[in-house]
Design a binder for these strands. Structure first.
Lengths: 196, 196
DNA sequence: TCGATACCGGAGCGAGGTTCCGATTCGCTC
DNA sequence: GAGCGAATCGGAACCTCGCTCCGGTATCGA
């Protein structure tokens, strides 16, 4: 299924054993450092944690986005796959959309700085943006279309804007106890509902 | 009016003529550079544009936030003062809130990177955050309370969260044609309305 | 005019991202 | 098992940027 493989390092193409081992080591180290210091932790720290040089990290993951994608690929995929399932299971499309959005928000909020990185237009992050879009936009579009077909929501808001808005609302949610991103996203989705 | 002067440089305390002149030059240069390159343009660029050294810029504006505040102070004040006026003029508190939010969004969206800087927890920006909060939170609180008293909105969302959410939604709005922050903010405010 | 004081300007330090290249290790072949 | 070419490793080096520090200088008051 979906081998929409970008240049995200390589999973099977690696010939040499040490290269593959190092790639895994790097993924583990990156995951640990991301949890501890956020997704924009210094590259040096990740390299140090993995016990490799910086050349190694940049060879395996040319941009920081590639590393982030590799670390979170499974979770993003899970979120993407949950969409159709929710749509099939939920009572109404709008309910399914709401539940899917919750999933997405939970994912973003628990990753330090991920939401911020997603909107960051700094060089190297647009690949991350693109990956999320590639993977999740179709899912969101289907949910949105189903809800629109059921007449539950106001028309005219495409999935891109919705996802972008959700991503934005999640920025900084993990470092500010006074701010509840879930609440605001729920309000946004509520606002999407047809007043009728 | 309102000499709630923080450490935002000084407006009248400067004794020496050249100091005052440089301060104004810096404000003009900063405004120009902010428009061209966003509020997080390199300090060196601003100094160069103003034709002064970097020591000068840091003496007048110890942190970047002080500079940003000084540049936008008038507009923030105008926004703050518009709140009560709208509340008095509008047909309903919720309408006034909506119009005030539009004002705020317009302000944020037209300043490159301002919204992002506001949520940035990097050192030096929390003063900016604090200034906006000091100035606008009371206004927003009053609008929200009036709307709540009129029974127009769901209870339980404080002004801080609303403003933060709006600020977040505005991030990156100026550099992405596919994204319409005004629309999403409107949806959020709509979601705030009591379903009844 | 003259001294004290505040101000000016840029060299310099530290942090972080990214590149580059010599040394090393691996996998394959004979 | 030894040799060889190529891929990989590692970190030194370079760049950008924020911020500080201090010698030189202009300004104000007496």
């Amino acid at each position: 299924m979906n081998d929409s493989g970008r240049s995200t390092g390589s999973s099977a193409g690696s010939k040499r054993k040490d290269a593959r081992r190092n790639q895994q080591t790097l993924l583990d180290a990156a995951a640990a450092v991301f949890v501890a210091s956020g997704v924009d932790a210094p590259v040096r720290d990740i390299a140090a944690k993995a016990g490799v040089g910086m050349g190694t990290i940049y060879r395996h993951f040319p941009t920081r986005a590639d590393l982030v994608i590799a670390v979170y690929r499974h979770q993003v995929d899970a979120c993407a796959e949950a969409g159709p399932a929710l749509l099939a299971a939920g009572p109404t499309p709008h309910a399914a959309l709401g539940r899917w959005v919750d999933l997405f928000v939970d994912f973003l909020v628990t990753k330090h700085g991920l939401a911020a990185a997603l909107q960051n237009d700094n060089a190297g992050f647009e690949t991350l943006h693109a990956y999320f879009l590639d993977r999740l936009l179709p899912v969101c579009t289907r949910l949105l279309e189903a809800a629109a077909a059921a007449g539950e929501i106001r028309p005219g808001l495409d999935a891109y804007q919705l996802m972008r808005g959700i991503g934005n609302l999640c920025i900084g949610a993990e470092s500010d106890a006074r701010y509840d991103a879930r609440r605001l996203v729920a309000l946004l989705v509520a606002g999407l509902r047809r007043p009728d």
